[in-house]
């Protein structure tokens, strides 16, 4: 996605330089506030790492093609968004200055398109938000994929806008956008998978290297497993047993709609199948309309709330046990077959 100088007019290039310079200024300010001498060498070596990692071809399963790494999302997940942004500027400058990859005039636009979105949207928004209650493999996978897709979609959108604003191509906006976005969706997915694979590896081997790990990563859940179950059980009893006494007697949304059309909330059903279903329900429903069969009382509502909650829990556990039973049997057969 490195833009060449020819794709930008001087005005657009200058604007993008200004935007990138402002963000770089903010990042430098934040790094200076941190006052961590060790961070600068780490940023330098991490930049060299990203540059080296971009040389690796990742084979994409089932396509016969291969993908590459951009790296800004990964850098943010390791160094933080500000340090990641500055490191990405270093990477893009070396690519531009030493390898003529991306134009000198277009450097500001390239920094914005490839570093800003990855570091500040992918890192500061998505990664930080998803990891606020601690890290897990699934969260890392989701944040990496989402972050990389967002980064590449926004980057591709910016490329389209910048090129059109420069008056370089005669392609209509819609066609240009339709050409750019889908391909970058696929690239973003591959980049996200690569980033996730590396970050999960890091999480398992050296989790302290990940950004925000010390602050939130090691946070244990506020309640233990048993504690969560106890809180849920108490909540169920309170809601089902006490708060159910104060439920509204007004019809719900569907009943209200039916009443508006027919004038009544209870529709009469005719026909054999309806009669049969009604009979079955009258036998099985021990607590019709959440009260005793014999009469309407507060005790009946409370009892209905509590017993209903217990029945749901028992049913869920039963379903889980049945699924586990069949999975174990199926799994054993599979293993036997292999042996």
């Amino acid at each position: 996605m490195h833009m060449a100088d020819a794709l930008l007019s001087p005005a657009v290039a200058g604007t993008m330089y200004a935007c990138s310079a402002l963000t770089a200024g903010y990042s430098v300010h934040k790094i200076r506030l941190e006052n961590d001498e060790k961070k600068i060498p780490v940023m330098g070596v991490m930049g060299a790492f990203v540059f080296a990692a971009q040389m690796i071809n990742f084979s994409i399963p089932g396509t016969g093609s291969s993908g590459h790494l951009c790296g800004s999302m990964m850098l943010s997940a390791i160094l933080g968004p500000e340090a990641g942004f500055l490191t990405m500027i270093g990477v893009l400058m070396v690519q531009c200055l030493l390898f003529a990859d991306g134009g000198l005039l277009a450097l500001g636009a390239n920094i914005w398109n490839m570093a800003f979105y990855g570091c500040f949207i992918g890192g500061m928004v998505i990664w930080k938000y998803m990891m606020r209650n601690g890290m897990s493999r699934r969260k890392i996978m989701a944040a990496s994929i989402l972050g990389c897709i967002m980064m590449l979609q926004l980057g591709a959108f910016s490329v389209t806008l910048e090129t059109l604003a420069s008056g370089i191509t005669e392609l209509p906006f819609g066609i240009f956008l339709a050409a750019m976005q889908p391909i970058h969706l696929a690239i973003g997915l591959v980049e996200g998978l690569i980033t996730a694979a590396v970050l999960i590896f890091l999480y398992e081997v050296r989790p302290e290297l990940l950004w925000n790990y010390h602050e939130t990563g090691e946070k244990k859940s506020r309640l233990s497993y048993k504690g969560v179950i106890a809180v849920l059980a108490i909540s169920a009893v309170v809601i089902g047993g006490l708060l159910s006494l104060f439920v509204s007697s007004n019809p719900d949304g569907l009943e209200w709609s039916v009443k508006q059309v027919t004038g009544t909330t209870e529709l009469e059903s005719k026909g054999g199948i309806y009669v049969l279903a009604d009979r079955i329900q009258s036998v099985t429903s021990l607590l019709p309309d959440y009260t005793w069969k014999e009469g309407n009382s507060a005790g009946g509502t409370t009892f209905s709330g509590i017993i209903g909650g217990i029945v749901v829990v028992v049913l869920c556990i039963a379903v889980c046990l049945i699924i586990r039973f069949f999975r174990c049997r199926f799994g054993d057969k599979g293993n036997n077959g292999k042996d």
Binding site: A24, G25, V28, I31, R32, I40, P41, M43, G44, V45, G47, A48, F51, L86, T87, I89, G90, V91, M93, V94
Partner: peptide, 11 residues
């Protein structure tokens, strides 16, 4: 910024 120049040199 000197930080950026240092990063470039180290890289």
């Amino acid at each position: 910024p000197k930080e950026l120049v240092t990063i470039l040199l180290l890289m």
